[in-house]
């Protein structure tokens, strides 16, 4: 699904965003990307949505070399990727319903389709009662669920989440992770950047660790329990930490 081949990103200031990072993510994977601030996690995300161009190296997403996508085609490429951010990035002037609907309006869905799809996805994310609220009337966790609903409403094959729980308390974070896991179970590849080590250890998913723009660790931590139900998954996240076993 994602293939980074010796990707280097140098910023204008001379700082390295990424330094010959090479990794790949298979279709349907749930992958964590960890590392301290400035390690290059956000750079990876921004390269993937083509907000930035790599200085060197090649990025292939779903078999497509990103350098072959012209500027005009970028919006169409982005419609295949759901993006979730730490600061939610909701449209403040629109209700929950309209925020999610916007992602469909962009792709030219009819009003009828929108009316059918949006309530569905909001039910999945547990926001059925908040349809007509504005973002500033919601809690952080609710706002993040709106942003996940918006990212997922088009059923993109790839979902990127940049510090999705960065602003949230532990219990809400578990809800959000559970939601992402549920989305992953529908076949969507999920890539989550975070610095919440405890969460990552409990999740027992594949972990990519970045440090100063280099991939320093790439392994599956703990039991790689793919077929776990979301309920079991959440229970495990709430349980006290256990020593991760490496398979």
């Amino acid at each position: 699904m994602i293939d980074f081949r010796a990707v280097t990103k140098k910023y204008g200031t001379g700082a390295f965003g990424l330094d010959e990072a090479t990794f790949s993510v298979d279709r349907g994977d749930f992958v964590f990307m960890i590392g301290s601030t400035g390690s290059g996690k956000s750079t990876v995300m921004r390269l993937l949505i083509k907000e930035l161009e790599p200085t060197e190296g090649q990025i292939v997403v779903a078999g497509r070399d990103l350098s072959t996508i012209k500027r005009r085609q970028v919006p169409f490429y982005r419609r295949n990727i759901g993006v979730v951010f730490q600061d939610f990035k909701l449209l403040p002037n629109r209700t929950v319903y309209d925020n999610v609907a916007y992602a469909l309006q962009v792709t030219g869905h009819s009003r009828k389709e929108i009316r059918a799809k949006v309530p569905d996805i909001l039910r999945l994310t547990g926001l059925s009662t908040k349809l007509h609220n504005y973002p500033d009337q919601l809690s952080g966790g609710e706002q993040q669920r709106v942003s996940i609903a918006r990212a997922f409403v088009n059923h993109p094959p790839l979902l990127l989440a940049d510090e999705p729980t960065g602003n949230l308390d532990p219990e809400t974070s578990i809800d959000i992770m559970r939601l992402l896991y549920r989305i992953n179970r529908t076949g969507t590849t999920v890539l989550v950047a975070t610095h919440d080590h405890a969460m990552v250890d409990k999740m027992r998913r594949r972990v990519l660790e970045l440090s100063r723009g280099r991939v320093v660790r790439d392994e599956a931590t703990g039991l790689y329990a793919r077929d776990e139900s979301t309920r079991e998954f959440a229970q495990r996240l709430r349980s006290p930490s256990e020593a991760p076993q490496v398979l």
Binding site: P75, R78, L91, V106
Partner: peptide, 16 residues
């Protein structure tokens, strides 16, 4: 401008 930024992230074309 933030609004525009979000619209772009969702995949809106420039003219949209």
């Amino acid at each position: 401008r933030r609004e525009v930024e979000v619209m772009k992230l969702v995949g809106a074309t420039d003219w949209f």
